[in-house]
């Protein structure tokens, strides 16, 4: 079959291509620029030691952000990850009394289960993910307080093998950094190169069309929240291993840092577009900014919040502008 008709113009407009590049790689470019500026401005910035510090401190947010990227691409949001993170820390420390396996499995099982329940509610009742996971946030914070005697108890990690998961280092980088890298690669393959990943994009892009194209919408949505819950649980457990204790006062507002990193990385909160490379760039960018602020010394670390808030606002506005430009072209 062939048609003797001229094809429509196939070359994308220049503006469109530029806007796509900004969309996909904006965070990476800003990250590179920031690192460059930091290296020029501060002698102690571009050192292997500082790089390792940034990597280690960013790794926990990064792990959660991987799950969050899946959720946001599917058109949802998960506000419960901060609470999951803390709850998992407490559960891991508690579980470490019974060995490394219990220390890992207990938080994963609980956080995974809660993620699964949230996913089922979102997928089956059609309630807004924002509300469902907000309830999850509150509920898990309550659960954490209940487990830890109203936050009064701090559980110490009592298993050396488990503590090593958070603290042992290899080539200057601790284990969580390698785990983050592994999860990033795995996640990227899952997202880009499997039917599941493509379904996530399709649902976020156009849920109705995805259903018509045979995507099992409810199942994919459920799984996405399960993944997010599991990863938040894992991050919490690893953090407990690093600190040798489950600390109950951490994690307030962590979900917002994670969402900010994902959005800065170019994933659209409206769903359907984005990716893990951008998310990693977003997480690292926030880490680098934090490090730079520490370098300046005279600035408090709160300054980082100002910068990331401003950055987030800037990014969403730029995304809107790009979106409109693409519409018009």
């Amino acid at each position: 079959m062939s048609v003797a008709v001229e094809a429509p113009p196939a070359t994308p407009a220049k503006g469109e291509r530029a806007s796509q590049i900004v969309q996909h790689h904006g965070a990476l470019m800003v990250l590179a620029a920031t690192v460059l500026v930091g290296a020029i401005a501060f002698d102690s910035f571009a050192t292997p030691q500082n790089a390792a510090n940034i990597a280690v401190s960013s790794s926990f947010v990064a792990i959660i952000a991987i799950g969050m990227t899946f959720v946001i691409i599917s058109g949802g949001i998960d506000l419960s990850v901060g609470s999951s993170f803390v709850l998992a820390g407490v559960l891991a420390a508690y579980g470490s009394r019974y060995g490394v396996l219990a220390a890992l499995l207990l938080p994963l099982a609980v956080c995974g289960l809660i993620g699964l329940v949230q996913g089922l509610i979102v997928a089956r009742t059609g309630m807004a993910p924002f509300i469902v996971t907000l309830a999850g946030l509150l509920g898990m914070r309550g659960l954490m307080l209940a487990v830890s005697g109203e936050g009064a108890n701090t559980y110490l990690v009592e298993d050396d093998a488990f503590a090593a998961l958070g603290q042992a280092s290899f080539l200057g980088l601790t284990v969580p950094v390698y785990i983050t890298l592994g999860l990033f690669l795995l996640g990227a393959i899952l997202l880009q190169r499997t039917g599941f990943g493509q379904s996530v994009y399709a649902i976020g892009g156009n849920e109705e069309a995805a259903a018509l194209m045979g995507v099992p919408v409810a199942r994919v949505k459920t799984l996405v929240y399960l993944v997010s819950g599991l990863l938040a649980g894992l991050a919490g457990a690893l953090n407990a291993a690093r600190l040798s204790s489950g600390v109950t006062i951490l994690g307030v507002g962590l979900e917002l840092d994670v969402i900010a990193a994902v959005v800065i990385g170019g994933t659209l909160l409206t769903g359907g577009a984005g990716g893990l490379t951008g998310t990693m760039a977003g997480v690292l960018l926030l880490g680098v900014i934090q490090s730079l602020i520490n370098q300046v010394g005279t600035l408090t670390s709160s300054f980082q919040q100002v910068v990331s808030g401003a950055f987030l606002a800037l990014v969403v506005v730029v995304q809107r502008v790009l979106h409109r430009a693409q519409r018009l072209s």
Partner: peptide
């Protein structure tokens, strides 16, 4: 058009049968 606008032409064309 009942496809996914943000996904590539190829992914739209072959979604579910990649």
């Amino acid at each position: 058009v009942n496809l996914v606008p943000q996904m590539s032409v190829a992914h739209n064309l072959l979604l579910g049968r990649e």
